[in-house]
Design a protein around this nucleic acid. Structure first.
Length: 142
DNA sequence: AGCGTGACGAGTA
DNA sequence: ATACTCGCCACGC
């Protein structure tokens, strides 16, 4: 207990709980909108998206992406620097030393203007501590 | 009540 | 890989 930011007193609106759950996702990782809702066993991807659209500053909104790892164009442009800073795995990036740049004449395809998170590598699964927080959030849902 | 609108997702062509 | 459909569901008019 105590290793988390203090939870506001419940009961929570679902949108509020979704934002708090999003804040559990650590830098360098990501989950889909559907995943986020699934962590609370409540709502669905549309509600997760709406919650993110209204999320307060300080929420790592760029860590919540579409199921294919993308974000709407206007957002992905703003997300790119965060991915670079956090080392988030993106599609088209070499995983190890095997860098087979398929584009040939073009430069490295990595963080273009519209990066796509490689969820196969970046998807976050809650650790035990996070699961405890999620359980608490669920229990306090209004 | 109906109807349009989303920071969505899966299926199909 | 891109485009388009359809299902989804809370909100606001």
């Amino acid at each position: 207990m105590g290793t988390f930011p203090d939870l506001p007193p419940g009961p929570y609106e679902l949108s509020e709980a979704l934002v708090l759950a999003a804040q559990l996702v650590p830098p360098g990782h990501a989950v889909s909108y559907g995943d986020l809702a699934g962590m609370l066993d409540a709502g669905g991807p549309r509600q997760a998206g709406r919650a993110m659209s209204r999320a307060p500053d300080g929420t790592g909104w760029w860590r919540i992406v579409r199921a294919d790892g993308s974000l709407p164009a206007s957002l992905s442009a703003r997300a790119a620097p965060h991915y670079a800073a956090e080392g988030t795995p993106l599609t088209g990036q070499a995983a190890g030393s095997l860098a087979a740049t398929p584009t040939g004449t073009l430069g490295p395809p990595d963080a273009g203007p519209h990066p796509r998170v490689d969820l196969a590598r970046a998807r976050w699964a809650p650790d035990e501590a996070a699961r405890a927080v999620l359980a608490e959030l669920k229990a306090r849902l209004g």
